[in-house]
Simulated assay, not measured.
Amino acid sequence: MKHYDYIFAGSGLSSLMTAYKMAISGKFANKDILLLDYNAKQENDRTWCFWQKDNSIWDTIIYRRWDTARFANETRSTDLDFGGYQYKMIRGIDFYNFVFAELRKHSNIEFINQKVIDYKDAGTNVLVETATESYTCNRLFNSIYNRELPASQNKYPILQQHFIGWHVKTNAPVFDPAKPTFMDFSIPQKGNTRFMYVLPFAEDEAIVEYTLFSKDLLPVEEYEQAIEEYLKNLSTSGYSVIAEEKGSIPMTSYPFWENNTKNILNIGSAGGWTKASTGYTFRNADKKSDELITYLLKEKDFTGLYKRNRFWFYDLLLLDILSVKNLMGGTIFSAMFRSGKAAPVFKFLDEETSFAEELKVIWQCPKALFIKALFKRITNL
């Protein structure tokens, strides 16, 4: 049974980010590191988008970037002022190739294409079992999401950001390649938070995505019909579907970190790294992986890494509202972006604001909804 210093159970975004940063830091060169995943990460299976002002280590693989975006609801359409931010897109295959190209330079880092089926903190080490072999390690990073954990309680609501997106080529020029559609709530809400999301690459090419923030997924046909209707209203004169992507991202303030042990750390969606109020993952995971690298160089007990903060509570209040009145998402986000100035909202959602700045954003939202949710939540913490 081979032993490693660190094992990653699952090699999704957060695992690969962390392993990459461990590699380029030069501070883990004497540590044996193993990544385990049933998926070889050789396909373009997803896209990630995020807003950012500064440059980052990922800039060389940015596929598209935009300086503004459109926000719409049933009464108006607004071009957002990003105030120096850019909206950036990274394709999954470009990210995988970039990270693995670096990892292959480090003989102490190994990737094995196996599915993890179990793991256990034995105190002095961690036992990891795959479908075919067993391994031990000093410390385990688990990114395999366990839906049963948040589902086993009712203190923290659970929504999903679920979607189907079509990469389409249209017969007529209908898109503005300089302006994605961030959220379009003008479509029928049907009692939920539903919006269209458009990432344009050319006047006749874009990813068009039908997205919901709700508890339950829909039949595939309902997503597809919504996309078809949206494209019809754009007067595309016909189109072809180049590729399709779909997903379901957990949105919950459930404290995943409470399941960490001394030697096992849950990361990614399995560790609550997804931004609970929006489902955005890339930027949050980038920051969390930086924090993790710093922690690894100083501490050894994973149980002391995370804790609640006021942003966790803000997210919780929004999810409390949407879990009871799911159709209010469009109203809330429309209020946040009413002025068209997106920079204060982006800064708030990135958890980089002062308390005074946060109050300005929160004050734009429907006050009665949040006051009611606040009083109800205070009695339930």
Results as ranks from 00 to 15, higher is better:
residue 377 R to Y: 00
residue 166 W to T: 10
residue 356 A to F: 09
residue 306 Y to G: 07
residue 263 N to C: 13
residue 370 F to L: 08
residue 111 F to C: 13
residue 222 E to H: 12
residue 163 F to N: 00
residue 357 E to S: 10
residue 370 F to V: 09
residue 235 S to L: 02
residue 168 V to N: 02
residue 368 A to K: 13
residue 214 S to P: 03
residue 262 K to Q: 15
residue 70 R to I: 15
residue 60 T to K: 14
residue 232 K to L: 14
residue 104 R to T: 11
residue 49 C to K: 03
residue 288 K to N: 12
residue 228 E to K: 11
residue 192 N to E: 06
residue 360 K to M: 14
residue 6 Y to I: 12
residue 132 T to N: 11
residue 333 F to H: 06
residue 262 K to M: 14
residue 330 G to F: 00
residue 10 G to P: 07
residue 129 E to T: 15
residue 26 G to C: 09
residue 254 Y to K: 02
residue 286 D to F: 01
residue 157 P to V: 12
residue 375 F to V: 14
residue 328 M to N: 08
residue 285 A to S: 08
residue 65 R to E: 10
residue 53 K to D: 07
residue 65 R to H: 09
residue 127 L to W: 00
residue 376 K to R: 12
residue 200 P to D: 05
residue 128 V to N: 00
residue 310 R to G: 02
residue 372 K to I: 07
residue 93 I to Q: 14
residue 124 T to W: 00
residue 87 Y to D: 07
residue 341 K to A: 12
residue 355 F to E: 11
residue 190 K to M: 11
residue 198 V to P: 06
residue 56 S to Q: 11
residue 354 S to D: 13
residue 100 F to N: 05
residue 322 L to V: 04
residue 101 A to C: 09
residue 257 W to V: 11
residue 43 E to C: 10
residue 295 Y to S: 08
residue 75 T to P: 04
residue 256 F to A: 03
residue 302 F to H: 14
residue 89 M to S: 03
residue 282 F to T: 00
residue 179 K to E: 04
residue 366 P to I: 04
residue 322 L to C: 13
residue 82 F to M: 15
residue 283 R to I: 03
residue 365 C to K: 09
residue 277 S to H: 02
residue 277 S to V: 06
residue 246 K to L: 15
residue 200 P to V: 03
residue 360 K to Y: 05
residue 233 N to E: 13
residue 22 M to G: 05
residue 17 M to C: 11
residue 55 N to T: 15
residue 312 W to K: 04
residue 353 T to E: 10
residue 316 L to K: 06
residue 113 N to F: 02
residue 328 M to S: 09
residue 279 G to N: 01
residue 169 K to F: 05
residue 86 Q to R: 10
residue 319 L to K: 00
residue 307 K to R: 15
residue 182 F to N: 04
residue 236 T to F: 02
residue 342 A to T: 03
residue 367 K to I: 07
residue 277 S to Y: 04
residue 111 F to V: 12
residue 64 R to M: 14
residue 238 G to K: 06
residue 248 S to T: 10
residue 213 F to P: 05
residue 114 Q to R: 10
residue 345 V to L: 06
residue 189 Q to W: 02
residue 110 E to C: 12
residue 354 S to C: 13
residue 15 S to L: 03
residue 4 Y to M: 10
residue 321 I to L: 05
residue 278 T to E: 00
residue 364 Q to R: 12
residue 155 K to A: 13
residue 122 A to V: 07
residue 138 N to D: 13
residue 267 I to E: 01
residue 22 M to K: 03
residue 66 W to K: 05
residue 32 D to M: 12
residue 4 Y to P: 07
residue 52 Q to W: 04
residue 185 F to L: 10
residue 304 G to D: 10
residue 279 G to E: 00
residue 101 A to D: 11
residue 245 E to V: 02
residue 144 I to N: 09
residue 51 W to V: 08
residue 18 T to S: 13
residue 135 Y to D: 08
residue 356 A to C: 08
residue 22 M to I: 02
residue 16 L to P: 03
residue 11 S to R: 07
residue 196 M to T: 06
residue 291 E to N: 06
residue 66 W to H: 14
residue 318 L to R: 00
residue 74 E to D: 14
residue 180 P to T: 14
residue 106 H to R: 13
residue 108 N to E: 05
residue 107 S to F: 12
residue 132 T to K: 14
residue 341 K to L: 03
residue 373 A to P: 12
residue 173 P to E: 09
residue 369 L to T: 02
residue 143 S to D: 13
residue 209 E to G: 05
residue 21 K to C: 02
